[in-house]
Computed example of a mutant assay.
Amino acid sequence: MLEVNAVNQFYGESHTLWDLSLSIPKGGCVCLMGRNGVGKTTLLKAVMGLLPIRSGQIEFDGQPVNSLSTEARACAGIGYVPQGREIFPMLTVEENLQISLGARKDRSRKIPDKIYQLFPVLKEMRHRRGGDLSGGQQQQLAIGRALVLEPKMLILDEPTEGIQPNIVREIGEVIRTLNQQEGLTVLLVEQKLPFARRVGSDFRLLDKGQLVAQGPMAELTDAVVKEYLSV
């Protein structure tokens, strides 16, 4: 579904991704893991076209996307939930969701019923401003906004960061439902190990901008955790 081949990325003179290659299989739920500052968010932004890459190739669903804009990548079927959510606080919940309708291939102007089924609170609060929602509700809104596209792949950057435990559980169940029952491919950056083990089918582990370990989640051993994740 997603192929990253020998990608190099720089912030100024700082080399952040080093000949990075990894694959995200169709139908997988892959947790991208690693300590802070190893390049996880940088990789997601490069995949979305929010950051330029110096060299290498990124392919989605069998097609190269290097030359595509962020909007075109969304239209191709990549839903993206950024770190920090980045909703529009002065727009209503409904207006936040409607923003993504423009990237739908079918040009539908209706928010899919599934969004409100997955997140009933968004229906209850659809006329409230996004900035009036709690952090957890804003995260649900950000995920719902990405799902309005009916994407082929959903990318989430630390979806549980700063979220109350009950909503963390709800988000985990939504991800599992989308992946296991609907076959949606998921790539998420996640720091909470119990959450990653619960929702993820596989892991990819970065260190200093390079892939250092990967495999089924069951193979994320204590030794690997200690070497690359413990602080």
Rank of each mutant, 00 (worst) to 15 (best):
S100A: 15
L101Q: 14
A103C: 09
R104F: 05
R107M: 07
R107A: 10
S108G: 15
R109L: 12
R109A: 14
K110P: 07
K114E: 13
Y116E: 05
Y116S: 02
Y116T: 02
L118K: 00
F119S: 06
P120W: 04
V121T: 09
H127M: 04
H127I: 04
R128C: 08
R129V: 02
G130Y: 13
G131T: 14
D132G: 07
D132R: 12
L133F: 11
G135I: 10
G136K: 03
G136Q: 03
G136V: 07
Q137Y: 03
Q139M: 03
L141M: 06
A142Y: 07
G144P: 07
R145G: 06
A146S: 12
E150R: 14
P151G: 09
K152A: 10
K152P: 09
K152S: 14
L154I: 06
I155R: 01
D157I: 10
E158M: 05
P159D: 08
E161C: 06
G162E: 04
Q164V: 12
N166G: 01
I167V: 14
R169W: 00
I171S: 01
I171Q: 02
I171Y: 02
G172K: 02
G172N: 01
G172H: 00
R176M: 01
R176V: 01
N179C: 02
N179Q: 00
Q180A: 10
Q181E: 06
Q181A: 05
E182K: 02
V186T: 03
V186K: 00
L188V: 01
V189H: 10
E190I: 05
E190V: 07
Q191V: 10
P194M: 11
P194V: 12
F195L: 11
R197H: 13
R198D: 14
V199A: 10
S201L: 12
F203M: 09
F203Y: 15
L205I: 10
L205Y: 11
D207R: 08
K208C: 05
K208E: 09
G209N: 03
G209K: 08
L211A: 04
A213V: 08
A213N: 10
G215D: 02
M217F: 04
A218L: 11
L220Q: 05
T221G: 11
T221E: 03
D222R: 12
D222I: 06
A223P: 08
A223S: 15
V224Y: 04
K226R: 15
E227M: 13
Y228P: 09
Y228E: 12
Y228N: 14
V231Y: 13
V231I: 15
